[in-house]
């Protein structure tokens, strides 16, 4: 449905939320924990940041609500990646990979030439 949003890079929280949901549907708090685990605790999403990302991703059709549950009288809404979201995440990870490869190549060349500053 949204074919052409691939030219703007994803922000890190957004990227991580999509990555978390790529493993399967998760509710909000599970996404926070998953992101913390994936990044070895470097990124701990806060609720405001998480829901800003979830809301935008839903509006753009990259994720959708999978199901809702009430656990200990708390609403838990599970989100899942849509087909569009999957494509967007794939496009973003290949973009990041390309950049990383580029940077690594340059760094290697720099060392091979002995170009590093003394």
């Amino acid at each position: 449905m949204l074919p052409d949003m691939t030219d703007t890079p994803l922000r890190e929280p957004t990227f991580l939320v999509l990555t978390a949901l790529a493993a399967g549907p998760q509710h909000g708090y599970a996404v926070i924990e998953d992101v913390a685990r994936m990044t070895d605790g470097r990124v701990r999403l806060r609720a405001g940041t998480l829901y800003a990302a979830l809301d935008r991703l839903r509006t753009d059709g990259l994720i959708e609500v999978d199901r809702e549950e009430v656990v200990q009288s708390r609403l838990r809404r599970y989100y899942r990646l849509t087909g569009v979201g999957e494509k967007r995440l794939a496009a973003e990870s290949s973009r990041l990979r390309q950049q990383a490869t580029l940077a690594e190549g340059r760094l290697r060349a720099r060392h091979d030439l002995g170009g590093a500053p003394a």
Partner: peptide, 17 residues
């Protein structure tokens, strides 16, 4: 509109954390 969509859920997340 945002509260209607997410308040209960966000309270759940905040309390869980």
């Amino acid at each position: 509109a945002h509260r209607r969509a997410y308040e209960e859920e966000m309270v759940g997340v905040l309390m869980a954390g």
